[in-house]
């Protein structure tokens, strides 16, 4: 059993420290570095919180819709090939799959986009 606080709690605490105590008094070029660090911690935290569940669900859905077995990477490659061959354009389930896997990447890497664009 790991000791508490866990990794997510530590990242949240680091975020609050950097944002509230270090950033306001940092010099301009340091502020840029700090904002990058906060952005990176946010991505890492969201990935940690999500675990591998979303990726496993995606893998299962791709396997089902593409009627193939394989790793997430292999199935993504297959989906990419089917897009290029024009097979996704006419298939509502595959279109929806493409949207969902892309949306999931944005949720982890750039949730601000979803706030701005709805």
């Amino acid at each position: 059993m790991r000791i508490q606080p866990d990794g997510i709690n530590l990242l949240d605490t680091v975020t609050a420290l950097l944002r509230d105590q270090v950033l306001p008094s940092a010099a301009a070029d340091q502020q840029y570095a700090l904002r990058m660090a906060l952005n990176a911690i946010g991505i890492a935290r969201r990935q940690l919180a999500n675990g591998s569940q979303a990726e496993q669900q995606e893998q299962a859905l791709m396997a089902e819709l593409l009627a193939e077995q394989g790793s997430h990477e292999q199935l993504s490659r297959l989906l990419a090939r089917q897009v290029r061959e024009g097979k996704v354009k006419s298939s509502m389930p595959l279109r929806d799959l493409l949207w969902q896997v892309t949306l999931q990447r944005v949720r982890e890497s750039a949730p601000r986009y979803l706030k701005q664009e709805g």
């Binding site: 990058m36 991505i43 929806d96 892309t102 949306l103 990447r105 944005v106 982890e108 890497s109």
Partner: peptide, 22 residues
């Protein structure tokens, strides 16, 4: 490293601009 993480929002916006939305 963070530049890689710009790619997903570009991807989603491309899907939006080209008529694919869930």
């Amino acid at each position: 490293a963070l530049t890689s993480h710009i790619v997903p929002e570009l991807e989603l916006h491309i899907l939006r601009m080209t008529g694919l939305e869930g």
